[in-house]
Write a protein that binds this DNA or RNA. Structure first.
Lengths: 95, 95, 95, 95
DNA sequence: CTGCCATTTTACCGGC
DNA sequence: GCCGGTAAAATGGCAG
């Protein structure tokens, strides 16, 4: 194999790693922002602990709804009622 | 207290919660992006597991460097030498 | 310190490790049993995939109920309404 | 098909689900026990993190040994030296 | 500083 | 037999 091949591969890897590191920095920055909002809320007399519970609850509610929808799809698929496209059912009927 | 006060307070809380939720969505989105980069790397023949180790170690290295720098600043401050410029180092060398 | 002390310590650690390993074996054995039940169900014409979904759903429902109860307690505590004993509220009222 | 058939099938499924749920409860209970042992170890001055590493490595060693044994059995089978029954061992002893 | 919670990592299970 | 996704474990971070 060629040294050039290695260099290209190494450079490709380096770029991927740097993309990841940049994204992780952004992610950490947003984490800081979230913490700041909680601090601000606390300074205005709200209880961050209760706020975290509320946020968590709302997130779980959303997940529960999404999962329920996914479950309905799963059952439909298991019953052969699933149509990937609007034409799907017609196509199946035509088959 | 007044009912109006309650309404304002509730609205203020609602806005804070919504800010947090929006930030958490962004954070989750970036998490997805990171996962995508790892997937892309894998599809190009790189091992994501190894890449994660590299990213983690580089992060640790960075932290170590940052801590060392912070320590140096602490010492400088304690010695009344706090200078952001190269002259500070010259002063230390002279000591 | 004495060599005896070391021996005792080593033996104590050995016993703890062995207790853990025995428990993990039991746990793995039960995992096998579960897998067997799914296999048996499959051989009787039931779909293990759907069964897993059902089991997961029922577990999540139970967790949701438990969390809701815990949440109610949290809110009560935040409102100073929590009483460890039936006498608790009377004591607070008397204070 | 008859409604009765459905009822029987549903009951059979229900029993299987309940068997699974009972086994999963046992499994979770043992998981709690394991956590308790780690806590107890910690309170006695041992480091749970290190203990987990030890347990993991011992498990890997055991797996390696088991695989080696399985390989030996495979070779024996290939050579017609495998005895599945007590009689087989007698035969081998007689050989 | 201790316990809890979120995130991350690992192991498992089913599908192709 | 690999690979993808999904559940369990473990680690790290944060509030109290």
């Amino acid at each position: 194999m060629s040294g050039v091949g290695h260099n290209i591969g190494h450079n490709e890897l380096r770029l991927l790693i740097e993309r990841i590191e940049r994204l992780e920095e952004e992610k950490a920055g947003i984490g800081e922002d979230i913490k700041d909002v909680y601090s601000e809320a606390k300074s205005r007399g709200f209880d961050p602990k209760i706020m975290r519970i509320i946020v968590r609850e709302r997130k779980m509610d959303k997940h529960a709804r999404d999962e329920r929808d996914a479950l309905i799809e799963t059952y439909k698929a298991a019953l052969g009622m699933l149509a990937d496209t609007p034409l799907g059912q017609a196509a199946m009927a035509a088959a």
